[in-house]
Write a protein that binds this DNA or RNA. Structure first.
Length: 131
DNA sequence: TGCCTGACGACCC
DNA sequence: CGGGTCGCCAGGC
């Protein structure tokens, strides 16, 4: 899988996150079969053009700790993400150090591997013998 | 080739 | 919860 395919797979999975739900970079990475590439999921979203169709709900992807990742001092990306989440009804709280947090127990969406389409030709996990 | 850098994460205390 | 450390891996330079 090259870089372009990786980005495509990321967008495909992100589009399946239900409204009023959030998931993590690492879970996206696991779903597309590359569990150690959480950081690269972030890169894929960073390079996402906002006017792609169908739209990619990038704001529903946060860190596994439930915090909205900062884009660096002086940037407003995290703030815009917070507003996008609240606009669809997700509760965002303020952390002590000024970070934004989402309660994953309430808003988290972490489907098991094989239950989500990755958009590629990867065979879905269908291990009926062990279930 | 080597070192630094991230929209990250698991651990530890 | 919060702060610090270390591991990961593709890109940039």
């Amino acid at each position: 899988m090259d870089s372009a395919e990786f980005h495509t797979a990321v967008y495909h999975v992100v589009r399946q996150i239900p409204p009023q739900k959030v998931t993590s970079y690492s879970h996206i990475a696991k779903l597309i079969g590359m569990p150690r590439h959480a950081r690269h999921v972030g890169q894929a979203l960073k390079f996402l053009s906002l006017d792609v169709t169908p739209p990619v709900p990038w704001h529903r992807v946060i860190s596994a700790a439930g915090t909205i990742s900062s884009r660096g001092p002086g940037t407003t990306g995290a703030q815009r993400q917070r507003e996008a989440l609240e606009a669809e009804g997700i509760e965002v709280t303020d952390g002590r150090t000024g970070d934004f947090r989402v309660n994953l127990a309430t808003w988290g969406w972490f489907p098991a591997l094989g239950t989500v389409s990755t958009g590629g030709h990867e065979a879905p996990v269908n291990d009926t013998s062990s279930q």
